[in-house]
Amino acid sequence: MGFKLLSKLLVYLTASIMAIASPLAFSVDSSGEYPTVSEIPVGEVRLYQIADGVWSHIATQSFDGAVYPSNGLIVRDGDELLLIDTAWGAKNTAALLAEIEKQIGLPVTRAVSTHFHDDRVGGVDVLRAAGVATYASPSTRRLAEVEGNEIPTHSLEGLSSSGDAVRFGPVELFYPGAAHSTDNLIVYVPSASVLYGGCAIYELSRTSAGNVADADLAEWPTSIERIQQHYPEAQFVIPGHGLPGGLDLLKHTTNVVKAHTNRSVVE
Rank of each mutant, 00 (worst) to 15 (best):
G2W: 07
F3V: 06
S7K: 08
K8A: 07
K8R: 09
V11Q: 11
Y12T: 14
L13C: 09
S16Y: 13
I17T: 05
I17S: 05
I20Y: 15
A21V: 11
F26T: 05
S27M: 15
S27H: 08
S27F: 10
V28S: 08
D29C: 08
S30N: 11
S31D: 07
S31I: 05
G32E: 09
G32R: 11
G32M: 06
Y34M: 14
Y34P: 13
P35V: 12
V37R: 09
V37F: 08
S38V: 11
I40G: 12
P41G: 10
V42A: 11
V42I: 13
V42L: 09
G43N: 15
V45P: 15
R46F: 15
Y48P: 05
Q49K: 12
Q49E: 06
I50R: 02
G53R: 11
V54W: 02
S56R: 11
I58Q: 06
T60E: 06
F63I: 12
G65S: 07
A66C: 13
V67S: 07
V67P: 09
V67C: 13
Y68M: 12
S70P: 03
N71C: 02
L73C: 02
L73T: 02
I74T: 09
I74Q: 01
D77E: 09
L81R: 02
I84M: 08
I84S: 01
D85K: 00
D85I: 00
W88A: 01
W88S: 00
A90T: 08
A90L: 10
K91Y: 14
K91Q: 13
N92L: 05
N92C: 03
A94D: 13
A94F: 12
A98W: 11
A98G: 09
E99H: 15
E101M: 15
I104C: 01
A111D: 03
A111I: 05
S113N: 15
S113R: 04
H117R: 00
H117V: 00
D119N: 03
R120A: 14
G122A: 09
G122K: 15
V124M: 14
D125G: 09
D125P: 03
L127A: 04
R128F: 14
R128I: 12
R128N: 11
A129Q: 14
A129V: 09
G131E: 07
V132D: 02
A133Y: 15
A133W: 14
Y135L: 04
A136F: 03
A136S: 08
P138Q: 05
S139Q: 10
T140I: 03
L143D: 03
A144H: 04
E145S: 08
V146A: 12
N149K: 06
T153Y: 06
T153L: 12
H154M: 14
S155C: 13
L156E: 02
L156A: 04
S162C: 11
G163S: 08
V166G: 05
G169I: 03
V171E: 02
V171P: 03
E172I: 09
E172Y: 06
F174W: 04
P176E: 00
G177R: 00
A179E: 03
H180L: 01
S181M: 01
T182S: 07
D183I: 02
N184Y: 02
L185I: 11
Y188M: 08
G197W: 00
G198Y: 01
A200M: 06
E203C: 04
L204Y: 14
S205E: 09
T207S: 09
S208H: 15
G210K: 06
N211V: 13
A213V: 13
D214L: 06
D216G: 10
L217P: 06
W220F: 14
P221Q: 08
P221G: 12
T222K: 10
S223W: 02
S223A: 06
I224S: 01
R226T: 15
I227C: 01
P232R: 10
P232N: 05
E233K: 12
E233S: 13
Q235K: 05
V237Y: 05
I238E: 01
I238V: 06
P239N: 00
L243I: 14
G245E: 03
G246R: 07
L247Q: 06
D248S: 11
H252W: 07
T254I: 08
T254Y: 11
T254Q: 09
N255I: 08
V257K: 02
S264R: 12
S264K: 12
